[in-house]
Amino acid sequence: MRTMSARREIDDTPAADTGGGSAARVQATGHSKSDAERLSSLMRQAQDGDAASYRELLTTLLPLLRRVVRRRCGAMPAQDAEDIVQEILVSLHNARATYDPARPFLPWLMAIARNRVADAARRSVRRSAHEVAVERFDETFWGAETYTPADVYGDPEALHQAIRKLPKGQRTAIEMLKLREMSLKEAAAATSMSVGALKVAVHRAMKNLRAALG
């Protein structure tokens, strides 16, 4: 694989129109003219469907894109930065018909890279606008008003007695749906009762239990 002799980051490429003066720009991006022409040639061959050239091009660009993203998104976690690099590669793939081989390649690539990095920054800002940084969650469970573990079921023994006294259908429905937390579908399959019958049974059972437990 061919390696690039980049001495400076290439994202210094000016955003302005890049029609002329390619030699000066090649100097500015730290690439020799032959490197730039090589990239342009690889891209042209990739547009013609040459998979080997395309692979060489993308592999060659990868370290450059990583540097660009790292430089522009310094504090970003490595995985997020790699996601942006991947987005740039896919965007390059989608937009490859827009490349004009008569024009320099790097300004074309950097316009896409800048756009995807900016999109990622906007996404990040939007996400952080909806998030609240919390250093520690307030513990309320030990407060006298909120620490009520014993109040949840009142008297468990009385509850068991009341369930035991329910008619068989209602008792089965309560056991399946409330105690074992099965879904209506699962309970219907396990008991051969219909979903409707289970709903009615559990409703009546709850009513009876409320009456029994006061």
Binding site: A51, L62, L89, V90, A97, D100
Partner: peptide
């Protein structure tokens, strides 16, 4: 997805494209 896997997949999808004419 690993970036190298992505490059492999992009390469496999590299069909010839019609270049856009000038604006």
């Amino acid at each position: 997805m690993e970036t190298n896997d992505l490059i492999r997949r992009l390469t496999a999808a590299a069909t010839p494209v019609d270049r856009l004419p000038p604006p």
